[in-house]
Design a protein around this nucleic acid. Sequence first.
RNA 1: UGGGGCGUAGCCAAGCGGUAAGGCAACGGGUUUUGGUCCCGUGAUGCGUAGGUUCGAAUCCUGCCGCCCCAGCCA
Length: 640
Amino acid sequence: MTDSNTNEHQPTPDGAAEAPAEHQDFLREMVQGDLAAGRISGVVTRFPPEPNGYLHIGHAKAICLNFGIARQFEGQCNLRMDDTNPTKEDVEYVDSITADVKWLIAGWADHCLGMKPVGRLPEKSDLGGREDYYQPPVMAAEGATGSASAPEAGDAPGGSEAPASPEPLEPFYASDYFEPLYEYAVELVRRGKAYVCDHTPAEVDEMRGAPHRPGQESAFRDRTVGESLDLLERMRAGEFPDAARTLRAKIDMSAPNVWLRDPVLYRIRHATHHHTGDDWCIYPMYDFAHGLSDYIEGITHSLCTLEFEVHRPLYEWILEALDLPRAHPRQREFARLNMTYTVMSKRKLLRLVQEEHVSGWDDPRMPTVSGMRRRGYPAAAIRDFCGRIGVAKSDNMVQVQMLEHCVREDLNPRAPRAMAVLRPLRVVIENYPEGHVEEMEAVNNPEDASMGTRLVPFSRVIYIEQDDFREVPPPKYFRLSPGKEVRLRYAYVIKCTDVVKDPETGEVVEVRATYDPATRSGMNPEGRKVKATVHWVSADHAIDAEVRLYGALFTAEDPEDVPEDGDFIDSLDPDSLETLTDCKLEPSLGAAVPGAAVQFERLGYFCADPEDSRPGAPVFNRTVTLKDAWARIEKKQGQG
RNA sequence: UGGGGCGUAGCCAAGCGGUAAGGCAACGGGUUUUGGUCCCGUGAUGCGUAGGUUCGAAUCCUGCCGCCCCAGCCA
């Protein structure tokens, strides 16, 4: 990483910062303004998930924002577990979150990822006669240079301390700051700005008042500093049961903003924490821990979602009440992402997993990062999507089509093509010699000649898609039907001469056809215009496979918007997964690498499932369909 | 009936007092051995609404309307 002191976004002599290259939003404008005004000398953001669930596309937006800003302004972005509630969190989640973040930013912003050596705790230093805690990052990417040093008073640490380290790294943890946080709490009490309150949860609730009615002061609000200090110490020592007492900020019980009505800072919770074990039985609340964690890490911009906007006065109150010596982080808020036909709340996603409506957090239908990865969505496409939807403050509902467009756009130029027949219909080419096999040359990607060509075997009996044949073709149907011709991709033009039906059901089970030897791929006779080209697989050479077709999980555009007596589960689409077990693939697909994208011509992008695909028993996931003009025509015909 | 936000095309979203970017979707057309890709074209006399200021307003002011968030010892 480059030393940020050479940052090109430093203020210029006339005080103006250089115009940024990426698309601008109000947050980047603020960051740029802070840089230009010299309020900060480098940018440090953070991505602070609570390890109580898997990351989803909404988190991806936050990741792209925070890492995107770090990248744009040559700063850093710390990955931090916001783990202050032991009863909800688990290491399973910290592991998945860490892996998902790394996957999402790989090749794009890994050089901005701030982590820290395993087990390292904040450094305590003396800053102008005052104690200070600082937890410097180590840039996770290779090639980090520089040396660590305690920042000076009044100066934000910026991205300039980034020591290279051979040590194993881990994310930051808010729980690594429990000791400093406790000391800050003690300091708040000493300053007369916090007190231990003995009211029960129900009393506290009752006394908080209502939005339009002032609250009532705690009976313990004015107890002496000494008494509060003693009680706080004993809370920590484990002398009291859960919920017996709390530490509260002393602000204003009549404040119109309820978060300023003496909010709870610490609660008693005799529980084992996934990261600190049984070291603590009191745990800090979000509002107390978050801003101070930001401060300890030298965060300059703390970006969160809109629902925290009303917490901002408290965020600032805590920092100011402690009169902290270094530059304070600034919290700003943006709108969270909502997307059609899916749910985004962790509670709902957890329910889908627990009630087994999906196979797990990484079910390809889930909007989770791991689900999208397994489905075959490239990280670059997700990033592109996040860039396109922008960052603003209005409530939004982005259409999934936008995401799918980004996936197709990323895959089209680089995914190799192959032929696969998902719902096979046998075609016998009557005038093609029995036992004869031709190797047809097929291009691997018409968008990129450098990807070369391959040979595909052709013979007398082939499979085509059931959908590519109609006994009675509807208007504008260009594909095969009795007496009609189609081109077989990379092979010949064939003509349907007859059909064989199941005597029981009347269903067409085989198509009889003849081919025209003069139409072999590459030699296109004049005046021979065939309206459609269909894909095919030689029956004798086909590989059998399972293919999983994924659609939207819900039938409702906004599943969260349920009627009063309803449940979002009710709008689950029972057909969101269709498993096809009799698929026929061209031989080259036998070598497919799990997770690697391939386009099944005319159908969509697919990838071998990383979990379930086996050599000899391939399983493919459909990542996304190709756009389908015929489907649209058909749909319109159905309506008209 | 308190506080904090937000209203620009079907969906996102620029716009920062000088006469409504861009993307997605949709719809036409062209190219095409993928009904894919690509290319061309089409959409707001209008910015929630009503007034006001101004030579000039989506941008400034005032009122009104609508939607979202906040009364966890969750984050």
